[in-house]
């Protein structure tokens, strides 16, 4: 099990959940994502920073499912989030607090992350470059 601590890159990624589907938009690259199943719950735990083990422990308090299935699905999603740039290495200072156990657990559903790149041309058309306080430009990414 990976010991790496991860967190959502909230400086560059905005997100919103409707009807159990989380939509995330990467402002630094122009891609957007849909995350469903138990993915939004895992995303919530990554708004602080968390390790794979901490996420699995937290999910065990709120979700019903085979521990091994949960572990492998969490590992798979964390890898996808890291690879896509949606998650970045986190530190202990921002650690997520474990949720309270639920009286009635919800069924764990494998997370499904889908990536859409059809907006990338907008991003290329009007790129915005942030200027820092010294007056020199640096790319927003």
């Amino acid at each position: 099990m990976s010991e790496q601590r991860l967190r959502i890159d909230t400086e560059n990624v905005v997100h919103e959940t409707v009807d159990g589907e989380l939509i995330a938009i990467d402002l630094s690259g122009g891609s957007y994502y849909s995350l469903s199943g138990s993915g939004p719950a895992i995303w919530g735990l990554l708004l602080g920073s968390a390790t794979e083990a901490e996420i699995c422990e937290a999910l065990a308090l709120t979700h019903e499912g085979e521990p091994e299935t949960i572990r492998s699905e969490v590992a798979r999603l964390l890898e996808q989030l890291l690879e896509s740039g949606l998650a970045v290495p986190g530190d202990r200072a921002g650690a997520t607090r474990a949720p309270d156990a639920l009286a009635e657990k919800v069924t764990f559903e494998p997370p499904k992350l889908e990536r859409y790149t059809d907006m990338k041309d907008y991003f290329l058309l009007d790129p915005i470059h942030e200027v820092d306080t010294a007056g020199w430009p640096r790319p927003a990414a």
Binding site: E16, V18, D19, E21, I23, I25, Y32, S34
Partner: peptide, 25 residues
């Protein structure tokens, strides 16, 4: 679904707006 509606509505607005991403979304 509402999620599909948001996927059709939000990305082009948020990627072009650049100012108030999280609040606008």
């Amino acid at each position: 679904s509402a999620g599909e509606g948001l996927r059709a509505l939000a990305p082009s607005t948020i990627i072009q707006s650049g100012f108030h991403g999280a609040a606008a979304l």
